[in-house]
Structures are given as structure tokens and as C-alpha cells.
Design a binder for these strands. Structure first.
Length: 262
DNA sequence: AGTTAAATAT
DNA sequence: GATATTTAAC
């Protein structure tokens, strides 16, 4: 491989962890109550030290499904609370998709937050758009007290520029040599990998780490290949489910590219 | 599925 | 009463 290729990757790999920063980015929306109720984690496993997105659910109700399948669907989900952390993730996702082609489903996938629904994102997106609108007109200092959440994470400049190019910078087009991705794009992938590392540490402390590192190395060998948009989503998706796979003892290997559909 | 508007909950 | 989030309607 060429020098510059190994360069960006080296940087990428070095900048990795920083657990403090990762903690708030990962983890699920499954409330402690629910996790406990459905035995989603080891009984003696203490509560995760992370700050899970808060949810208001004083009266945890359960729609008892006798068939016992997918509680997630029959359960009355607690009212979602958009914490600054969650919102930041949201903004990041939108930024990387490009404001114009950022739609609920895609945003949701990119955020890869367990328990987060498309409706949740759609709703938030609607509100966020209103905020942006109100922001382009109102100079920028007429912020209502209700905008605290939105103000918590800076609005990427290009969000306010419907006229200028935006897709080129933040939209990962089809067939982009992975080695030619922009810094922020690599950074994003990097974060995803970091999230995996973190998840591995908290869940299956140990052999999990090896696999996530494997992904990193593997991608190094695949620099020459191209990263399709679909592949990108696939990667995010895999990363999202990685921790779960580990818990189920699956000897899963993450792949950078989705399996061929024949 | 995405948007918008009405309904609820906090 | 206002606002944040959900639900219904298109």
C-alpha cells in the first residue's frame, strides 16, 4: 500500500478510544426497569455505569404478550426524552447524511441507538427543522428558552445553506474509495468502531475486543476497495448489533461489506 | 415512508 | 398554560 494510505489509517487507529467520550454515545434506550424485567442482561450484572438516555416512565406498564415474542413492539414505550447527548448524536447523523437527504429512517439507522424508533426520530426532526427555520430568519440571538436542547449542540453551518452544496461534503456517494474519505467521515466510522470497543469492554469483557480490532485491521486491508453507501449503512447496522451478537455467544465477525444478494 | 397537524403528557 | 413527545392523518 502507499504511504498516505497507511497514514490516514494510522491516525484513525491511534485516535481511537477515549472511553469518556464514548460512554454517552453508546448504549440503549432500554430502561433499567425493562432490562431487568425481561432479563436482558445478567442478573448479577450491575447497572451500566453509563448515562442512558433518560426516559419518563413512572408507571412502567407491560402489555403482557402471552406468546412472549418481541416485547419491544407490544410494550408501551416510555416517553422518550431527548437529552443533549442524544440530540448530539442526532445532529451528527444528520450532518453526515447531508441535511437534504436526511430522513427519519436513515437517521435512525445511523444513530444506531437501541430502542430508538423511526417515529422518535421523525418527531425530533420535525421540531429540529422548525428550529433551523426559525434560526435562519431570526438572526441567531433570539433564542427562546425552549431552544436549550437545540442550542446544546452547534448547528453545522451548511444546515442553514439550502442553496449551497451540501451533499458533496457529507453525503457518502456510491463508490468512494475508502482511503479517500474525508477526515470527518473517517472520524465518524472511527467513532462507530470505538463504540464497539466500548460495548465490548462493558459486555463480554475480553475476547470481544479482539474482534473489533479485527475489523479495524480488516478495513486496513480493504482500503483499496470501495465503500458503497449501502456498505456504509451495513457497517453501521452491524456495529449497532455487535454487542448483542456477542452476548448471545455468536462468534460473529464483522464485515465491512454486506454479503452479496444473489 | 415522509410530512404535517392534532392530541397528550409533563 | 406552555412545551415536549406521541399519535393520527394525509
Amino acid at each position: 500500500m502507499r504511504e498516505e494510505d497507511s497514514n490516514w489509517f494510522a491516525k484513525w487507529e491511534e485516535e481511537l478510544p477515549s472511553p469518556e467520550e464514548l460512554i454517552p454515545l453508546s448504549q440503549s434506550l432500554v430502561t433499567p426497569d425493562l432490562a431487568l424485567a425481561f432479563d436482558l442482561r445478567s442478573p448479577n450484572q450491575p447497572q451500566p455505569q453509563t448515562t442512558p438516555p433518560q426516559q419518563t416512565n413512572s408507571s412502567a406498564e407491560f402489555a403482557v404478550d402471552s406468546s412472549g415474542d418481541e416485547p419491544a413492539r407490544t410494550l408501551k414505550r416510555p416517553r422518550l426524552v431527548w437529552t443533549p447527548q442524544l440530540h448530539k448524536r442526532f445532529v451528527d447523523a444528520v450532518a453526515h447524511l447531508g441535511i437534504k437527504n436526511a430522513v427519519p429512517k436513515t437517521i435512525m439507522q445511523l444513530m444506531s441507538v437501541d430502542g430508538l424508533t423511526r417515529e422518535n426520530v421523525a418527531s425530533h426532526l420535525q421540531k429540529y427543522r422548525l428550529y433551523l427555520k426559525r434560526m435562519q430568519s431570526g438572526g441567531g440571538n433570539v433564542v427562546g428558552e425552549s431552544d436549550h436542547l437545540f442550542a446544546s449542540s452547534p448547528v453545522p453551518t451548511h444546515f442553514l445553506h439550502p442553496t449551497a452544496r451540501q451533499s458533496s461534503d457529507h453525503f457518502v456517494p456510491s463508490f468512494v474509495p475508502i482511503a479517500s474519505l474525508q477526515h470527518h467521515q473517517l472520524q465518524f466510522l472511527h467513532r462507530q468502531l470505538s463504540a464497539v470497543n466500548f460495548a465490548s469492554q462493558t459486555n463480554n469483557n475480553g475476547k470481544a475486543m479482539d474482534q473489533s480490532l479485527f475489523l479495524a485491521r480488516q478495513s486496513q486491508h480493504q482500503q483499496q476497495q470501495v465503500l458503497t453507501r449501502q456498505a456504509s449503512l451495513h457497517l453501521h447496522s452491524q456495529v449497532a448489533n455487535y454487542a448483542d451478537a456477542l452476548e448471545q455467544g455468536a462468534n460473529t465477525v464483522l464485515t465491512l461489506f454486506p454479503p452479496r444478494e444473489n
